[in-house]
Design a protein around this nucleic acid. Structure first.
Lengths: 243, 243
DNA sequence: ATGCCATGCTGACGCGCAAACAACAGGAAC
DNA sequence: GTTCCTGTTGTTTGCGCGTCAGCATGGCAT
């Protein structure tokens, strides 16, 4: 992704920030890379920004920030130049005894916003309108962005029906649910009614009772006594495929 | 999925990135595969990109990145893919089974090879209503289920505005786009109008002209001559977070 | 205010390499 | 035989990187 020069600059900036906490100015970078003009730096910076390695505020002195480092950062920082020796990094990491580790290396940046993912089980379908059946069992798994998942257990359901269309939840969508037994009014939840029907509805309180409200004028809000409804989770994410 | 040569190239690139962090140039690849010409490399690279194994910036030196590896290789390198018990609704935080490892190991950044998810770059925001600006730069990456991605290059955009609400696309959603320059009528596309405004709209034909149709009665369908609109990709997925 | 300095932004020029593309040919597979 | 993958040669276009020079702006001291 990066050319030699771009990487050189990026690592220099990164070093500088680690040591002094202050990003270097264009002039300092120019000197560090042994250039005679800041113009070259400007272009390198632009390239780095374009590739998503740094972020900056335009027209602000030293206003730049490293947001990710090249993958083989550790290895590259050794500047092998010729005849690379890929063993250096491996040594620092050790061999994983059992863990089947794909060819990946130690993540370079710590505070980096890295996009990892989590796998959650799809537990069946849920009726958004007329309930089909309660939650079944794990049919398969789906991978979701880790940012979508907070703490706690999660599962996924396929939405059947159209009662939540006005909330942007369509037939066929997959919803990600956090397993919880409580919710705040206004949140969309998986509600189990009378221990038999599970539905995806918006949660409201009506005095001591609970209102389950669809997001579709064709469906009525249903109100139950507090003992007839169990909250089985709340909506935290939605995934849809087209085609 | 891949021909022998394509796989050979892919693995070479992957090795190179692991070792030096800098992707090889066409010339270096040519030498590595023992070819006399870069043209062959060009075709192989194109094929790999089409199949979604690598991502690259056009016309940029060494601007390429491996985003997934062939299954054969992934399987071989993480041999005991056996007892992979995918986190029942229990520890949902699980990722890959990690054995006795030093305190919390994190997943490697992009180009990490997970059989079930793919990382795509978020290229900025797109106006669903009034266009904000054309597609900007890579802001960060997001992980999406592999099932959502077919072949070809993909990217993601954050949706701004409400012009597609009736299609279930809300302000703040993240849409996954397959990079393509053609689409079928009725599909939702990223359209670049007059080389300046990028919008997410439904694609229609009106004779020789192109109609860009919002999914919100408050917005009018706009019709352009065929030369004023460029298709920049089509919608293949949507991800939404609640809270 | 004036002027200087630090810092950042940009255009122009040049060299060399990288990438894109075109045209053509051999070989393996269906 | 047709098709696909592969390999070759060659041309064209564009980027990477170095250099110089000019300009804008905000802070600071006179």
């Amino acid at each position: 992704m990066l050319t030699r020069k771009q990487q050189e600059l990026l690592l220099f900036i990164h070093e500088r920030m680690k040591e002094s906490g202050i990003p270097p100015s264009f002039d300092e970078m120019k000197d560090a890379l042994d250039l005679a003009s800041k113009s070259g730096i400007h272009r390198l910076i632009t390239a780095l920004e374009e590739r998503g390695f740094i972020r900056r505020l335009p027209n602000r002195a030293r206003a730049l920030e490293v947001i990710k480092l090249p993958e083989a950062y550790a290895a590259a920082s050794q500047q092998p130049r010729r005849g690379f020796s890929p063993t250096i990094v491996e040594g620092s990491r050790g061999k994983q005894p059992v863990a089947p580790t794909p060819p990946q290396r130690v993540a370079a940046p710590q505070s980096d916003v890295m996009s990892s993912s989590v796998s959650v089980p799809v537990m069946g379908r849920i009726a958004a309108g007329v309930p089909i059946s309660a939650i079944q069992n794990n049919t398969h798994d789906i991978t979701v962005p880790a940012e979508m998942i907070g703490s706690g257990a999660h599962y996924a359901l396929e939405v059947k029906g159209d009662s939540m269309i006005e909330a942007g939840i369509f037939d066929g969508d997959t919803v990600i649910i956090r397993d919880t037994s409580s919710a705040n009014p206004g949140e969309i939840i998986v509600a189990l009614v009378d221990d038999e029907e599970a539905t995806l509805k918006r949660f409201r309180r009506k005095g001591a009772s609970i209102a389950l409200e669809a997001a579709n004028p064709a469906y009525e809000t249903r109100i139950f006594g507090p003992d007839r409804v169990k909250i089985q989770g709340k909506l935290v994410g939605l995934i849809r495929r087209y085609n």
